[in-house]
Each structure stands twice: as C-alpha cells, then as structure tokens.
C-alpha cells in the first residue's frame, strides 16, 4: 500500500536521480554473501541486500533417472510432465545424456506477512518457473551433460531450493546471486561407471567430490523498474509499489542475455526498452565481477579453515 504523496515523492526523486535512500538510479545496494553454512546440503549460499532482502539457497544433489517414471494415472503423467517440462513442453525428453535442474522458490513464514497468501504462491510459482527456464538449457551455464552418469538412464538431479527469509525489494536479483553462489559451493560425489557382464553400473564415492562444471557461466539477473519516465535498478519495496513496468534481464559472464521478461501493468516504449537492455547488460557484468570477488574471498576463508559464524558474519561487497 502506498499513498499518493509517497508515490509522487518517489517519482520526482527518481526523475532527478535521487532515491529515498540516497542512491542514484543505477546504484545497486551493498550485498553480503556467505556460502556453505548448511552442511547437510550439497551447497548453500545466503545473500543479504542492505535494507532487508535475505535469500538462502540450498542445493541438494540426488541420483535420478533421465526420464521420470510414467505411471498409468493421467494425473501422475501430468505431474511428471510438469517436472520435465523444457522450453517446448514436449513430453518426451529429447536429450538423453543430460542431468536436470529443478528449482523451487519458497517463502519463509517471516517474509510472507506483507503479501496475501495467494499472491505469495503466485509469486513463488512465477519465480520458480523463470528459474527453471533460465537454468535448464545450454544458456543456463551449468554443464548438464557433465551431470549425466549413464546416458539414457541415470543422471544427477540438482534440486535448488530457494528460501526467502526476508523481503526488502528486488527478490529475483538476490535469488539469482544466491543460486550462483550456491552452485559455486556445491560439490557432487564422484560417480564412476563400470561395465560388467554387459550391464552398466555406477558407484558413488562419498569422499571424492567434484565442482559443478559451468557454474561461472550461470547468469545473474538484473531487474529494472520503470518509474515515471525513468528506470531504476534494485528497487526497494516502496519503489516497487510505484513502478509501472518491470524488465528482468538475465546476463551471463560473456555479456549475453540468457532471458528477458517484462512484468507489471504498464507498457514500455521500444527505445526505452533498448536502453534498459543495455543498462542491464552493464550492471549485470559489474554485479558478476562483484560476486566473483566475494566468492573468491569466501573460498579463501574456507581454505583457511575458518568456520562460518553464520548469519551476518561475512564480508560486505
């Protein structure tokens, strides 16, 4: 809920590039990144944006079959169809030599108080679908072929669970940052495949682990909100309420766009759209550099054997 005067104040401020917290239009908030605090998960990462947004991502790997089992009930078929829905929605999985990524976004009870329960579910579904679309596929960065154990039958499934702990605006950007951090942190047990008597078997070694190949190419997301005639980056909750339209752009290390999606009730002029795309690309690459620096620091901290004190103890970027 936002009053008319607040809306006016924010819109006029954005027009002269002065936002409520003193930032200019294209300034991103400070972010704090911690990895590896959930030891039960194969990988985890927490990202906090200065001002409230708190996202925790846990990655769990499991061995699964390349084609999920199809049962006789139609309802079950559809559930499986939903699970393996790729870009085209074709029910048969075309590539039988790839692993899968399943993303799920959930809101912790403490973050949900601001929204209606139905809106939360819609929002979580939308974000889950967006993530699934971006990460599954060659543009997602992760080397899905490397996740295959036995072509045609077994593969690794990465379950990415996103938990929104606190809402302070700009959830999707933080979610992607945390996901990329968690994938950097994830270790998969090594699977060795043996052929014996014509049967192919695989063995999982718990002690030896590998990193996820291609994690550096996972894109980061930049959400731009159109307020008045200008656009801003990294909106705070009140600014999100003022925005007439939103453009979400996923940018990867190479500067390519991995996804583009518009949201919001208003329209955007094509010229402004092109401008927003360019802005998003630049900011995305800056963010990637910031995150890579933070992850390197985290690696050093882990290598030095320092325990994560957990929650709010990591370095600021």
């Amino acid at each position: 809920m936002i009053s008319v005067s607040e809306r006016d104040y924010i819109t006029k401020g954005v027009d002269v590039s002065i936002r409520a917290d003193g930032r200019s239009r294209l300034d991103f908030r400070e972010l704090v990144l911690e990895t590896g605090m959930i030891t039960q998960a194969s990988g985890s990462c927490r990202v906090t944006l200065d001002g409230g947004t708190d996202i925790l991502v846990g990655v769990k790997v499991e061995v699964g079959s390349i084609e999920p089992e199809v049962e006789a009930e139609e309802a079950d078929i559809l559930e499986d169809m939903e699970q393996m829905d790729q870009d085209d929605g074709i029910t048969m999985v075309k590539d039988k030599d790839r692993g899968r990524i399943i993303c799920n976004v959930e809101c912790s009870p403490s973050a949900t108080r601001i929204f209606e329960p139905r809106d939360i579910e819609d929002m979580c579904n939308e974000y889950s679908q967006f993530m699934n679309r971006v990460l599954n596929g060659s543009h997602g960065g992760v080397d899905l072929k490397a996740l295959c154990i036995i072509p045609g039958s077994t593969c690794w499934i990465l379950n990415i669970d996103v938990l929104v702990l606190d809402y302070g605006g700009n959830l999707l950007d933080a979610i992607f940052m945390a996901t990329r951090g968690a994938l950097h942190n994830t270790r998969i047990p090594r699977a060795t495949v043996e052929q014996s008597d014509g049967r192919v078997e695989f063995d999982i070694a718990d002690e030896e682990t590998e990193i996820i190949r291609g994690w550096e190419d996972v894109p980061l997301c930049v959400s731009l909100n159109k307020i008045g005639y200008r656009h801003i980056v990294d909106a705070a909750p009140l600014e999100e309420l003022c925005s007439s339209a939103r453009l979400t752009v996923a940018v990867n290390r190479r500067g390519n766009l991995c996804a583009l999606q518009k949201g919001g009730h208003g329209g955007i002029e094509p010229s402004l759209l092109a401008e927003m795309v360019q802005t998003a690309k630049q900011i995305g690459q800056t963010l990637l550099k910031r995150q890579d620096a933070a992850l390197r620091e985290e690696e050093e901290r882990i290598a030095a054997g320092k325990d994560p004190i957990g929650f709010g103890a990591a370095s600021r970027h």
Binding site: M37, I38, T39, Q40, G51, G52, D54, S108, P109, S110, A111, R113, I114, L165, D166, Y167, G168, I309, G310, F311, G312
Partner: peptide, 28 residues
C-alpha cells in the same frame, strides 16, 4: 551460538545454532 536482530523487517528476530541444528525466528 546465537545472535539477535538478524532480520530487518521483523520486530524481533534471532538465530541460534546448537551444534549443527540451525534455527531462525522472527517475531511480529
């Protein structure tokens, strides 16, 4: 290990770690 005031939006919040069990609480 425990700390308070870990969430910005909640009236009160806390995080506690007992061994490997970790829990986050928020009070409104």
């Amino acid at each position: 290990n425990s700390r308070t005031a870990v969430l910005s939006q909640a009236d009160g919040s806390a995080y506690i770690e007992q061994g490997n069990t970790k829990c986050l609480a928020a009070v409104y």
